[in-house]
Design a protein around this nucleic acid. Sequence first.
DNA 1: GGGACATAG
DNA 2: GATTCTATGTCCC
Length: 426
Amino acid sequence: MTDSRIALVDVNSFYVSCERVFDPSLEGRPVVVLSNNDGCVVARSNEAKALGIENGTPWFKLAADADRIGLVAKSSNYELYGDLSERCMRLLSRYGSAQEIYSIDESFLTLSGTPEEQHRTAREIKRVVARNTGLPVCVGVAPTKTLAKFMNRIAKQNAHLGGVCTYDTMPPGDTENIMSRVPVTGIWGIAGRLGKRLNGIGIFTVADLKASDPVAMRKKFSVVLQRTILELNGIPCIPLETERASKEQMIFSRSFATPVTTAARMREVMSLYAQQAAIRLAKDEQQAAIMTCFAGTSHFNEKASSFPSATVKLPGPTADPVILTKAAVAALDGQVYDGVPYARAGVMLTGLSPAGAQPQLPSFATAHEEKNIGALLGKVMDRYGTAAIGLGRAGMTVAPDWQMKRERMSPRYTTEWDDLPVVRAN
DNA sequence: GGGACATAG
DNA sequence: GATTCTATGTCCC
């Protein structure tokens, strides 16, 4: 048998593993990586999972006990993770006739050959990624994406499999056995809400779902669930997306380290966020037609509740930081009040199109629009930091106090010359 | 077409 | 005292 199959390669505890690549002393210890603003746990090592620490736990609830239980927390370092991700994805691309980069730490690959050959390829992938990047991965191989995800999960949870699990080489009885024991929420696309509704009609395990009638389930639930059921039965319904579709919307939003309580400060925030959004537009080679600006108080603050937002139509599709910044600064005018403790804010861009798709008539383009300032801002900030340059921030030479907290961040070893690791030889 | 909701990583 | 960010898809009006 030489059917083509799908491999799902996933880095174990990706963010934690990235931290460990550069700090081997973290090996074997409970480690968590925190969200932006050092808010809550977004990645855990197995040792941290074993301590019962859940994803989403606020750091302030763990901090006091951290030393006592030997828990290490790191601020998230997306420069580092993004760079290691790229290296990893480039390596993986060698091993499949097609590749879908599904997330920062996951790729689907198309494998050919016999099941035994595919299993050997999967083992080689694991070996080569470990040797070339230092990152541990697990690989699941199966006829459909949903089954590949499931096989990957089995590989992760059963150390004796050596991090690789292939549907076609597993004794069918073993697979059925596992499926009849894993809760239905162990399947890709089924989380709490749907899980509860399924339990309500007697579907508790993966095996129960697999045995259900896809047509009836589509009527009762959704087309998504029907596809999942068919995929569990080996019928591919979810195609490999080898071309990254261009984004439909772009959001830049952040929580503040300390609340923003004045309209004047909020204008500063909007100005900086709009510039970050412009930089991303330039990187994606896109332009936007509509901008929504929003701010909000903390959802945990019941006394002050305010969620201002405003949508403005831009003069035409644009990626120009000058236009975007002016629009953002003006958008929330009159809706943000002094004295209200805003906890977060953001800029959303919609109506996106490829840059240059609708070339503007020269008479409508402003002088600065043609100069692609967004890309320039991005390059300067990449090299000299975000404080080095900016529009309309006269005198703002130090980071404002609302800027997000990253108190426990490791150096950006691979993307900052000044953060290069130091090697000592005795 | 748009808001609410669900899901994922 | 403190609780991420981003993107997509479906349902339903």
